[in-house]
Design a binder for these strands. Structure first.
Length: 527
RNA sequence: GGCCCGUUCGUCUAGCGGUUUAGGACACCGCCCUCUCAAGGCGGAGAUCGAGGGUUCGAAUCCCUUACGGGCUACCA
């Protein structure tokens, strides 16, 4: 009979949930699901300087967004709470009393300055730099007198010198061993009465009955210390699985200077949670070495720590983009428009009634020219939402135009801006020169206008294409010449989503207005 | 400095002593398709498995040494 699996993700709310933390959470979640276990969320907020409630909330939002719902923890409760360390200080105090009673700890009266000096000396001697255990030999009675006298002191673990190497079988790294003499009598309780990380993590994992500790490998070297605490406590030692870290493109630890590192940033940039989850899962784990696309359920059903890599992985946004684009191509128009709504609202694009009208407000100034050229009063998010609801099928028509052309949602609006600028469109100068200002283009536009003015023409992309294909034939021109001219005249740029579908969405009125405008441009003196 | 960990195409990885002329994916290059851009199809280039020693009939796979990278060495987590 093996105990039911209980794992935890224990972020410290000193920032947003970042890529590395998310991957740790994903593996913990998947491991729990795979074994029918419990996934616990615990907030490690013992550092009051850097921990904030806002970060605590943000981390939870990002986890939920990724679909990693915890079974126990903040917001959902559980029978091992509270799940925030700042609310568990009495537990740490009680455990310390137990350790005092068994003589596993001792008070240390060394000051921070004294410790620093000792450390420097050890460093200079090029040897062991841990605590020299000078207070370990202080007589118990004297120690008590000094404590009673109010002398500041910390509580250190009395490392059993005759212990022999601390060994454990890491589920990722395998058998790992640390010489006992390398472990110093580290502090469990600070002089201000707050507990240290290596202490509380043991108390919490023990009292929450965590069976598998899956965490970053920056904790690999801390593990022997923690094992000593478990032993002093007489508590069962969980299984450990350490995860190698995620690096930036330069091989250095991933940090802000590599660009976006928070889950929230990727959410804002238009990545899908399933795609991020999928990509992150692949950073250090593989399903079978062949499969790259899978959903959360497949991950949960197949996850295994044995297949977790020991090597640090470089975070490659290009591949994330590709994974995201695959999800985008599969999702279908309804889901796409739902996901796109916030971006439309931010941009202020609306399709007010029969007249298309676009408004762009881009304070960052990073949007392409086509977007900048639009002007007018921005539509409010509510107006956009109302418009999208009212013109749902029109909006869904956008999906096939962009689904194979963008990788993330934030690329969509710049690409479709021309659909929202009504009877006029901003013309890209270079495109005009290349595709419009050429011999014979005026005649082309005349033919196109005439053709499209046919009142019997059904304004849908297939019939539009059928009649327009006749134009180059009649004029003895290459189709490309004709269609590129129309594209620039109507879409404003020589690069755009598919032409005939665009004309359909634009409607005959706007299409013809733009064609006429372009024709005027070519013949300034003509009325 | 000490201790611990890691090292397969540019990147993520498969590989757990012979089935490997080291497989897949992203990126890259070419061709096809084509109204642009994409997408898609087909094909290509790309790792002597960090290096050097062993063990073995046989090693990317086991052992040792070394180089490089990373972590811990805090009254941070």
């Amino acid at each position: 009979m093996t105990k039911p699996v209980r794992v935890r993700f224990a972020p410290s709310p000193t920032g947003n949930l970042h890529i590395g933390g998310a991957r740790t959470a994903i593996y913990n979640w998947a491991f729990a699901k795979k074994h029918g276990g419990t996934f616990v969320l615990r907030i490690e907020d013992t550092d009051p300087e850097r921990s904030t409630e806002a970060n605590t909330q943000q981390i939870q939002r990002s986890l939920r967004w990724l679909g990693l719902q915890w079974d126990e923890g903040p917001g959902v409760g559980g029978s091992f709470g509270p799940y925030q360390q700042t609310q568990r200080f009495d537990t740490y105090g009680k455990a310390l009393e137990q350790l005092k009673a068994t003589g596993a700890v001792y008070p240390c009266f060394c000051t921070a300055d004294e410790l620093a000096a000792k450390r420097d000396a050890g460093m200079a001697a090029q040897s062991f730099t841990g605590y020299d255990r000078s207070c370990r030999g202080i007589d118990a009675g004297e120690a008590q007198r000094r404590i009673d006298a109010g002398e500041p002191h910390t509580w250190r673990l009395k490392v059993p010198l005759d212990h022999g190497p601390v060994v454990f079988d890491d589920l990722v790294f395998g058998n790992t061993s640390f010489p006992i003499e390398q472990l110093d009598d580290f502090i469990l309780m600070r002089s201000d009465g707050t507990p240290t990380y290596n202490y509380v993590v043991c108390i919490d994992d023990a009292s929450m009955q965590i069976t598998h500790v899956i965490r970053g490998d920056d904790h690999l070297s801390n593990t022997p210390k923690q094992i000593l605490v478990y032993e002093a406590l007489g508590a069962p030692i969980p299984q450990f699985a350490h995860l190698s870290m995620i690096l930036g493109g330069d091989g250095k630890r991933l940090s802000k200077r590599h660009g976006a590192t928070s889950v929230e940033a990727y959410q804002e940039r238009g990545f899908f949670p399933q795609a991020l989850l999928n990509y992150l899962a692949l950073l250090g784990w593989s399903l079978d070495g062949e499969t790259t696309l899978f959903d959360a359920a497949t991950l949960a059903a197949n996850f295994s720590l044995e297949r977790v890599s020991k090597n640090p992985a470089v975070f490659d946004e290009t591949k994330l983009n590709w994974v995201n684009s695959r999800y985008l191509k599969e999702m279908g128009a309804p889901a796409f428009i739902d996901a796109l709504l916030p971006y439309l609202q931010q941009t202020g694009f609306t399709r007010a009634g029969k007249v298309l009208w676009g408004i762009k407000k881009d304070p960052s100034g990073e949007a392409p020219d086509a977007v900048h050229a639009l002007s007018g009063e921005p539509a409010t998010p509510d107006e956009v939402a109302v418009d999208v609801a009212a013109e749902r099928s029109w909006y869904e028509g956008i999906y096939p135009l962009v689904a194979e052309r963008v990788k993330t949602l934030d690329e969509v609006c710049p690409l479709i801006a021309y659909l929202f600028s009504g009877p006029t469109v901003a013309l890209d100068q270079k495109s005009v020169e290349k595709c419009l200002q050429k011999e014979g283009i005026k005649a082309v536009l005349d033919h196109v206008i005439q053709t499209l003015q046919d009142p019997t023409l059904v304004w849908e992309h297939a019939p539009i294409e059928d009649v327009l294909r006749l134009v180059p034939e009649k004029l003895g021109l290459k189709p490309k010449v004709v269609f590129q001219a129309v594209r620039v005249a109507v879409c404003g740029n020589m690069v755009s989503p598919p032409l005939f579908e665009s004309l359909e969405l634009l409607g005959s009125e706007n299409t013809l207005a733009r064609l006429s405008a372009a024709r005027q441009l070519l013949v300034p003196c003509s009325s």
